[in-house]
Nucleic acid binder design. Sequence first.
DNA 1: TAGGCCATCTGGTCCT
DNA 2: AGGACCAGATGGCCTA
Length: 187
Amino acid sequence: MKTKNRPSRRRVPPQNTEATPGEPTSDRPQPGSGPQLAKGLRSRTARAQGARVESGRKRLGPAGPSGRRESSIQRRLESNERERQRMHTLNNAFQALREVIPHVRADKKLSKIETLTLAKNYIKSLTATILTMSSGRLPGLDGPGPKLYQHYQQQQSTGGALGVTEAQPEGHLQKYSTQIHSFREGS
DNA sequence: TAGGCCATCTGGTCCT
DNA sequence: AGGACCAGATGGCCTA
């Protein structure tokens, strides 16, 4: 795995829904309007708009008298904005998850797949720890220990919600430790 | 330069 | 009907 210690990406300001889509002038930043982009660069929004012609996938046609109706275009732009917001919410959730997963290189931002994988194994290792501790309870005491352990074993045998494949709970901790190590090494 | 990662747009489908 | 969700497509940025 490559190192992904890159600075935070350039943020694209919300698209101006008043702009007429498909106009070539919207494909590049206007001087003096909005954040300055590197020379020769366009915003992601503008790039994607400009790419609709080159894309093999069916794209919207040009706006205007022969293009889609203005109301349809407006709906699409609003939909795009909602989708952007949705993805930002999702990314915020990823960031929140990153912040609660202990990993060695705090200066190295975990990718999304690394975050999910590490979180999964972190949960597994915590579960294994809890089970190890709770299985040592004194007989007769109420508590989740034995039942939790039985449930866990059942999940293992059925390949249930946890998706457990390791035979022993200790394997999770081992796997998590190995994974942290591999991320630290940047492999 | 190749490959990984990402943001964005888009149209289809599902859900309320 | 409209919004949420999803997956495909595209192209830029970054690192090895």
